[in-house]
Amino acid sequence: MTTLRKIFLRREAGIAVMIVLFCLAVGAVKPQFLTLDQLRIILLLTPLVMIGAMGQMLVIVARHVDLSIGSMLGVSAMVSGMLYRYDATWFGVDMPWWGGIPISIVVGALLGLGNGLLITLFRLPAIIVTLGTLSLYRGLTFIISNAKQIDRQWIPSELKGLAQTSPIMGIPWIIFIAFGVALATYFFAMHTRVGRQIFALGSNPVAAPLRGIKVNQVTLLVFAISGALSGLAGILYASRWGFVNPSNTGSGFEFQVIAAVVIGGASINGGVGTVLGTVLGVLLLGCVSAALPLLGIPGTSQAAIYGAVILIALVIDRSVRQQGIASLKRARA
């Protein structure tokens, strides 16, 4: 067990070293990359991805994948946006500015539950179900909004303020929320019974029921969490960007999030993944996106870099795993 722990520790240390090296390399060319102001920019790029990545990490640990998170983000942001826009017309009351937060979380959780139900009830593979709901939920976003954007004037300024005003040290609320979610995920995953069951389920689905794990309930919970966190990311999208658009909001989100989680060392074979690794994965991607325009590299190369980073992370993951197995064998021998 200690050998395995060492490997995971090394994995996270590896990402941290990569981040430091990357920042130093960029800083050598552009010294302003190593300023506090730049740190603020990088941090502001990450909250949505970080929140989505926490849910996705749990899903991947449970040996599933959720491709629909971008569309769930879109639907839940749009439901709140529509309520901000039409609250007076429909209900004759003004929705308080924070009203969208619980509403989006609940909408997201329900959509995630929908994924989970399809997967558990019909024993379907998550990848195909969520590929379907990726399209289906995106369509829903268009339908509930009648294909109209919710403009900035309808998003309450207090909500937009979450991404701009700061409780301390000039760091906006939205970043604290993201790290709060990461911390909560850590306690849930490491120190609760259900959290540990997710890992047990992912590392050995066949043995899980024998250990008294209610596989269906845990799976449902994991997908509901992924949905709820997408919902939270949805309302924070409205806060960060000040609008909700039926087609842009959340599209492509899944690729950023999956890239971050895989880079963070969660194994697609289930059972392995840490909050710290995922946070570092998110930060590394944030550094890359912030550095590109500073270096004058055209944005067109961003997708290629993301793709290459995913593949490299996979290959590293594999060699780490093999070394782990080899060292285990040595230890036994």
Binding site: K30, Q32, T35, D37, Q38, I41, L45, W241, F243, N248, S289, A290, L292, P293, L294, P298, G299
Partner: peptide, 21 residues
């Protein structure tokens, strides 16, 4: 002259880079 590809995220990072550069 920089290009934000008509995406809010990309346009924002390009604008931030302009201000630091």
């Amino acid at each position: 002259t920089v290009y934000g590809d008509d995406q809010p995220e990309k346009s924002t990072t390009e604008m931030e880079a302009l201000l630091s550069n």
